[in-house]
Protein backbone atom coordinates (compact mmCIF):
# COMPACT_ATOMS: atom_id res chain seq x y z
CA UNK A 1 0.00 0.00 0.00
CA UNK A 2 1.41 3.35 -0.97
CA UNK A 3 -0.32 6.68 -1.11
CA UNK A 4 -0.11 10.24 -0.01
CA UNK A 5 -2.15 10.89 3.08
CA UNK A 6 -2.51 14.63 2.67
CA UNK A 7 -2.06 14.87 -1.08
CA UNK A 8 1.16 15.22 -3.05
CA UNK A 9 3.84 17.56 -1.71
CA UNK A 10 3.65 21.13 -2.87
CA UNK A 11 6.34 22.52 -5.12
CA UNK A 12 8.98 23.83 -2.76
CA UNK A 13 12.27 25.48 -3.55
CA UNK A 14 15.12 24.15 -1.48
CA UNK A 15 17.08 27.07 -0.06
CA UNK A 16 20.34 25.22 -0.01
CA UNK A 17 20.70 24.30 3.61
CA UNK A 18 20.51 20.54 3.99
CA UNK A 19 21.61 18.28 6.80
CA UNK A 20 21.45 14.51 6.71
CA UNK A 21 21.34 12.79 10.10
CA UNK A 22 21.94 9.04 10.21
CA UNK A 23 19.61 7.40 12.74
CA UNK A 24 20.53 4.21 14.55
CA UNK A 25 20.41 4.95 18.29
CA UNK A 26 18.59 7.01 20.88
CA UNK A 27 21.45 9.53 20.82
CA UNK A 28 20.78 10.08 17.10
CA UNK A 29 17.17 10.89 17.97
CA UNK A 30 18.41 13.72 20.20
CA UNK A 31 20.89 14.88 17.55
CA UNK A 32 18.22 14.95 14.84
CA UNK A 33 15.75 17.01 16.87
CA UNK A 34 18.45 19.42 18.06
CA UNK A 35 19.72 19.93 14.51
CA UNK A 36 16.15 20.55 13.38
CA UNK A 37 15.61 23.07 16.15
CA UNK A 38 18.77 24.99 15.36
CA UNK A 39 17.94 25.13 11.63
CA UNK A 40 14.42 26.31 12.50
CA UNK A 41 15.80 29.09 14.67
CA UNK A 42 18.12 30.20 11.86
CA UNK A 43 15.21 30.41 9.42
CA UNK A 44 13.30 32.50 11.94
CA UNK A 45 10.73 30.10 13.35
CA UNK A 46 9.60 31.07 16.84
CA UNK A 47 10.71 29.11 19.87
CA UNK A 48 7.27 27.50 20.06
CA UNK A 49 7.32 26.49 16.39
CA UNK A 50 10.83 25.12 16.78
CA UNK A 51 9.70 23.03 19.76
CA UNK A 52 6.74 21.63 17.80
CA UNK A 53 9.16 20.70 15.00
CA UNK A 54 11.72 19.18 17.40
CA UNK A 55 9.04 17.09 19.11
CA UNK A 56 7.75 15.74 15.77
CA UNK A 57 11.31 14.91 14.65
CA UNK A 58 11.87 13.09 17.94
CA UNK A 59 8.83 10.88 17.28
CA UNK A 60 9.64 9.92 13.69
CA UNK A 61 13.31 9.33 14.58
CA UNK A 62 12.34 7.09 17.48
CA UNK A 63 10.03 5.10 15.21
CA UNK A 64 13.03 4.38 12.97
CA UNK A 65 15.19 3.21 15.90
CA UNK A 66 12.44 1.19 17.49
CA UNK A 67 10.76 -0.52 14.55
CA UNK A 68 13.51 -0.67 11.95
CA UNK A 69 16.85 -0.13 13.69
CA UNK A 70 18.34 2.35 11.27
CA UNK A 71 17.47 4.96 8.73
CA UNK A 72 18.08 8.61 8.05
CA UNK A 73 16.54 12.01 8.47
CA UNK A 74 17.11 14.76 5.95
CA UNK A 75 16.48 18.26 7.23
CA UNK A 76 16.28 21.14 4.80
CA UNK A 77 15.23 24.75 4.73
CA UNK A 78 12.48 25.37 2.17
CA UNK A 79 10.78 28.36 0.62
CA UNK A 80 7.30 28.49 -0.90
CA UNK A 81 6.06 31.81 -2.29
CA UNK A 82 8.28 33.67 0.15
CA UNK A 83 7.22 31.48 3.05
CA UNK A 84 10.11 29.84 4.88
CA UNK A 85 10.13 26.60 6.75
CA UNK A 86 11.88 23.37 7.59
CA UNK A 87 11.19 20.15 5.73
CA UNK A 88 11.92 16.80 7.33
CA UNK A 89 12.27 13.61 5.31
CA UNK A 90 12.58 10.50 7.48
CA UNK A 91 13.43 7.37 5.51
CA UNK A 92 14.00 3.75 6.40
CA UNK A 93 14.33 0.50 4.48
CA UNK A 94 12.41 -1.51 7.04
CA UNK A 95 9.48 -3.91 6.70
CA UNK A 96 7.10 -1.09 5.83
CA UNK A 97 3.60 -0.50 7.10
CA UNK A 98 0.71 -2.33 5.49
CA UNK A 99 -1.93 0.25 6.24
CA UNK A 100 -0.66 3.80 6.49
CA UNK A 101 -4.07 5.25 7.28
CA UNK A 102 -4.44 2.91 10.27
CA UNK A 103 -0.93 3.73 11.51
CA UNK A 104 -1.91 7.38 11.63
CA UNK A 105 -4.97 6.76 13.78
CA UNK A 106 -4.69 7.54 17.47
CA UNK A 107 -4.05 4.49 19.57
CA UNK A 108 -2.65 2.37 16.74
CA UNK A 109 0.79 0.86 17.16
CA UNK A 110 2.29 -2.34 15.82
CA UNK A 111 4.72 -2.31 18.73
CA UNK A 112 1.89 -2.66 21.21
CA UNK A 113 2.67 0.70 22.76
CA UNK A 114 0.50 3.72 23.09
CA UNK A 115 0.73 4.56 19.41
CA UNK A 116 0.68 8.29 19.96
CA UNK A 117 3.87 8.93 18.00
CA UNK A 118 2.81 9.35 14.38
CA UNK A 119 -0.64 10.88 14.86
CA UNK A 120 0.89 13.21 17.45
CA UNK A 121 3.71 14.26 15.14
CA UNK A 122 1.16 14.91 12.41
CA UNK A 123 -0.75 17.30 14.66
CA UNK A 124 2.41 19.29 15.39
CA UNK A 125 3.37 19.88 11.75
CA UNK A 126 1.81 21.99 9.01
CA UNK A 127 2.25 19.29 6.35
CA UNK A 128 2.60 15.58 6.84
CA UNK A 129 2.88 12.86 4.21
CA UNK A 130 3.63 9.24 4.79
CA UNK A 131 4.32 6.63 2.16
CA UNK A 132 5.15 3.02 2.89
CA UNK A 133 5.67 -0.13 0.89
CA UNK A 134 5.72 -3.51 2.55
CA UNK A 135 9.19 -4.99 2.17
CA UNK A 136 10.70 -1.72 0.98
CA UNK A 137 10.39 0.81 3.76
CA UNK A 138 8.69 3.96 4.91
CA UNK A 139 9.18 7.64 4.21
CA UNK A 140 7.62 10.39 6.29
CA UNK A 141 7.83 13.88 4.80
CA UNK A 142 6.69 16.76 6.96
CA UNK A 143 7.08 20.53 6.96
CA UNK A 144 6.81 23.26 9.56
CA UNK A 145 6.34 26.79 8.23
CA UNK A 146 7.24 30.04 9.88
CA UNK A 147 4.03 31.50 11.25
CA UNK A 148 2.49 34.66 9.79
CA UNK A 149 3.53 38.07 11.03
CA UNK A 150 7.19 37.33 11.53
CA UNK A 151 9.18 38.52 8.56
Amino acid sequence: MSFWIVGPPKEQTPMGDEVLVAISSDMDVVRARQTGRSMATQVGLSRSEATLLATAISEVARNIVEYVGEGQILLCTVNLNGMEGIKVVATDSGPGIENVATALQDGESSGGRLGLGLPGARRLMDEFHMVSKVGEGTTVTMTKWKGPGRG
Binding site: T51, G120, R123
Partner: peptide, 14 residues
Protein backbone atom coordinates in the same frame (compact mmCIF):
# COMPACT_ATOMS: atom_id res chain seq x y z
CA UNK B 1 7.81 22.52 32.10
CA UNK B 2 8.66 25.37 29.74
CA UNK B 3 5.80 27.25 28.03
CA UNK B 4 6.73 26.09 24.51
CA UNK B 5 7.12 22.49 25.71
CA UNK B 6 3.76 22.67 27.49
CA UNK B 7 1.95 23.91 24.41
CA UNK B 8 3.59 21.25 22.23
CA UNK B 9 2.41 18.58 24.70
CA UNK B 10 -1.15 19.88 24.53
CA UNK B 11 -1.13 20.05 20.72
CA UNK B 12 0.38 16.56 20.58
CA UNK B 13 -2.31 15.21 22.87
CA UNK B 14 -0.01 14.19 25.72
Amino acid sequence: IQPDVASAMVQFGL
